[in-house]
């Protein structure tokens, strides 16, 4: 009897659990639900969190959706700007299900993946159209006043929103932003090369400016040295001149007997002009060799 009671309790618990699973459903704060009766959706979405009752499947069925903002990133794709530059861009989009009962029949059982695929298709089209209207300088510019990234984002968002509104997908775009910006590989390499060339200019500038600066310093130093030497030589000449002038004061002494003075000067000149390599040929009349005239051999 006791065993039967326990069995009945277990069976009752199981029945209650199954009944709750079949006849009730919860909707969370983050969710919105659509209740269908024999496949026909109810007039209003269930967007308030609570416990709700329903008839079991297949009479009624609940479709739940996340009503929070969902974000996804499109493919990193290449587009042509108006100044014929190939630009790679990727944008991320924040979107939400604005009307669940419009949303779920349009995307295979309310598949978020299917919706994102559809959004991506629209996004790529809108992105290509908007990028084609702008120059590269609108995307990248050191002058922030000319940078138009935010307005480009707004243009893409407006284009996608317009497309969504025209077909009433039950989706709204909350925000959109550029997540990646780049150049294709074939352009990236030349940009690398150009960046290297810029550096090479700086390298050359540094090298040759260094040499020029060094040459200037050396020549200035040499010029200064020449100045110093020249000044010194001029000073030396002046000093020597002063010496000569001072020495000239002694000439009056020599003027007392010019004959003797001139004779002495001749003797000094004689001394100075003869050196070891000089060859002198004298005859017997030249003193002191005149002594040879009175020799016996000569008198004979």
């Amino acid at each position: 009897m006791k065993k039967n009671l326990i069995t009945i309790v277990i069976a009752a618990v199981l029945v209650v659990i199954f009944a709750l699973l079949l006849f009730t459903f919860q909707v969370r704060q983050s969710e919105v639900a659509v209740l269908t009766t024999f496949g026909k959706p109810a007039a209003n979405n269930i967007d308030q969190p609570n416990l709700y009752f329903k008839w079991p499947w297949p009479i009624q069925q609940v479709y739940r959706f996340d009503q929070r903002v969902q974000n996804f990133e499109d493919k990193y794709s290449e587009n042509l700007t108006s100044d014929n530059t190939m630009l790679l861009t990727s944008v991320y989009v924040g979107w939400r299900i604005s009307d669940a009962k419009e949303f779920f029949p349009k995307f295979a059982g309310g598949s978020v993946e299917a919706a994102q695929r559809q959004l991506e298709t629209m996004l790529r089209s809108a992105k290509a159209a908007v990028i084609g209207k702008h120059n590269l300088s609108d995307f990248v510019n050191a002058d922030t006043k000319q940078l138009k990234l935010e307005s480009i984002e707004d243009e893409i968002k407006a284009a996608v929103q317009g497309e969504l509104a025209s077909q009433n997908y039950g989706i709204s775009i909350e925000f959109l932003g550029v997540k990646k910006l780049g150049l294709p590989e074939s352009v990236t390499q030349p940009v690398f090369d150009r960046m290297k060339s810029e550096r090479t200019v700086l390298i050359s500038e540094a090298q040759f400016k260094g040499e020029a600066e060094a040459t200037k310093i050396k020549s200035a130093a040499e010029r200064q040295a020449a100045d110093v030497i020249a000044n010194a030589q001029a000073d030396a000449t002046r000093i020597e001149g002063a010496g000569v002038a001072e020495a000239a004061k002694t000439l009056s002494v020599f003027q007392q007997n010019p004959e003797l003075a001139i004779f002495q000067l001749q003797l000094q000149a004689l001394k100075s002009s003869l050196n070891q390599k000089s060859t002198l040929i004298f005859d017997e009349r030249t003193p002191p060799f005149s002594l040879f005239q009175n020799l016996p051999a000569n008198s004979k």
């Binding site: 004779f263 003797l267 000094q268 004689l270 001394k271 002009s273 003869l274 050196n275 070891q276 390599k277 000089s278 060859t279 002198l280 040929i281 004298f282 005859d283 017997e284 003193p287 002191p288 060799f289 040879f292 000569n298």
Partner: peptide, 18 residues
């Protein structure tokens, strides 16, 4: 003259033609 001559021609090669 003779003192200076001796000093001046001390290192020179001299030929005396008699």
């Amino acid at each position: 003259y003779l003192q200076s001559f001796a000093d001046a021609t001390k290192g020179a090669r001299k030929y005396v033609l008699l």
